[in-house]
Structure formats: structure tokens, C-alpha cells
């Protein structure tokens, strides 16, 4: 399943990085502590977080995440969007809280077929 399919299925607002929405999603990780995400997430993952600061872009880029999803309708900082656009990393926003969003995406990624 690619990022675009998840955007459509859970109703995400795409803030930047549209050109990379075709990327395959290999899994996900939910967390707000950057070194926890550094240590435990993998390439191709969607990262679900409430952090909006520009440092999230470096983490997602270094870890080769498929995209960043901000929860609870959080607005990304302007510098975050600028950097993410340059790095071609999709930043998306969901109105859902982390628990619910993670559950939905988990179901999409693990449902057979």
C-alpha cells in the first residue's frame, strides 16, 4: 500500500511532498521522542507524531520514512514544511488522536489482500 492510498483511506490533509505519495509504506511508528523514533522506526515507515518542529524532518529523512503524519490537527511549523518539501518528504495532518490514527493505519497495513 502506498502513502496516497493511506491518505485517501484515513482522510489526511497533505501539507507538502506530494511528489512522494507513490512511495510504498512498509510499516509505521508512533512517538514524540526523537531518539525513540531514531532507534525503533525503519525505512519506509509512516511516522505518527505531535511534534511540529523542523527537527522531525531530519529524523524522517535520515531514517528514510515514507512520510510524517501530525495528529490532532497539529499545524506544522513553516520551517518544517520548507525543509520537508526540499527533502521530498510528505507531511500530512490528521484530525484524529494518535491512538485512533495508529489503529486505523495498522489495520490497513495488516489487512489481507
Amino acid at each position: 500500500m502506498n502513502v496516497e492510498a493511506i491518505v485517501a483511506a484515513v482522510g489526511l490533509e497533505v501539507k507538502c511532498g506530494r511528489e512522494s505519495l507513490g512511495r510504498e509504506v512498509t510499516g509505521g511508528y508512533t512517538g514524540d521522542l526523537l531518539s525513540d523514533v531514531m532507534g525503533h522506526s525503519k525505512e519506509g515507515y509512516l511516522w505518527i507524531t505531535r511534534q511540529v518542529h523542523q527537527n522531525i524532518v531530519a529524523v524522517a529523512s535520515l531514517k528514510e520514512h515514507a512520510g510524517i503524519i501530525l495528529i490532532n490537527g497539529c499545524e506544522p511549523a513553516a520551517e518544517t514544511l520548507e525543509k520537508a518539501e526540499a527533502e521530498k518528504i510528505p507531511v500530512m495532518v490528521s484530525v484524529l488522536p494518535a491512538f485512533e490514527l495508529s489503529g486505523r493505519i495498522y489495520n490497513l497495513l495488516t489487512s489481507p489482500g
Partner: peptide
């Protein structure tokens, strides 16, 4: 506030 300070950075360095 920026999401640092979990006390995991040096562990990540050692592990990786």
C-alpha cells in the same frame, strides 16, 4: 519541548 531528552541517544549510538 522539541522531542529530545528521552535519554536514549547514547544507547542508540552504542547499539547501532
Amino acid at each position: 519541548e522539541m522531542g529530545f531528552g528521552a535519554g536514549m541517544g547514547l544507547c542508540n549510538i552504542k547499539n547501532y
